[in-house]
Design a protein around this nucleic acid. Sequence first.
DNA 1: ATCCAGGGCGGGT
DNA 2: ACCCGCCCTGGA
Length: 289
Amino acid sequence: MQEQKYILKNISSFEPKHIFECGQCFRWDEESDGSYTGIVKNNVINVKKVDNEVIFSSFGADNLEKLVIDYFDLNRNYEEIKTSLSKVDEYLENSIKYGSGIRILNQDLWETIISFIISANNNIPRIKGIINRLSYKYGNKIEWKGKEYYTFPTVEELSKATVEDLRKAGLGFRDVRVFDTTKKILEKQVDLEELHKEKDTKKVRETLLTLSGVGPKVADCILLFSTLKRFDVFPIDVWVRRVMNDLYIKNEDESKVNKKEIEKLAKEKYGDLEGIAQQYLFYWKRDTA
DNA sequence: ATCCAGGGCGGGT
DNA sequence: ACCCGCCCTGGA
């Protein structure tokens, strides 16, 4: 364990608030100075943007520079993506301006699966609370600057939890889902390493859907926000349904908008970048609501 | 108090 | 294929 610092200068398309509050992650919290602190693998990382510099400070075992480049997907050209998507229409162009510093993270697949199973019919404060309690109980403690942080439990660590333990941690009806999925992954009935090797997004999605608690929306979130990193998916939650209805479909009752219609529309308009388009639209709609 | 929050499941048509 | 009621929890 060691303290490290890494500074990015003149980086474009990197705004901590946009990245950490666009709904893709649950383990980052804002500090009083506006920076964000989160847990990535076995590291605690603080991200602070000052003018045109992003300062990363960490305490952990991994090489910070390598970790940051990988986790924040720094080798991807977001300027190019934004230029391309901005040409679609003025709605998307405006939402891209609003969330111009969004980057889609490469989050650990296992952690992303469990986190989004917990997210079902839940709200963000509760989701974060549950994940913190699971990490506190089954993860490992890291102490840094007088504060305690806990790593997200590994498959083996979480497999020690019984259904009752999970219920006590506040998971509610998601307890059995997390328990069953953990067991299935532990026993490699679904092999996460193998899943990374499959190129066909549809096949990966089919496999994810065999996991308890993983339906269409959760599967798409896992595909988009984890190291699987697929942009040809379009997670449809209440906010995305709302924004797509408001902008294009204009049905009087947004709850009756057909998912298939939204999927078709997204594919037509945004093509293979529909996943990233979804993030700009989601962040804009929810943040200005 | 009732409702809802970043859905999924199981049992109906 | 669609549709619907139900599922824990806690904050408004």
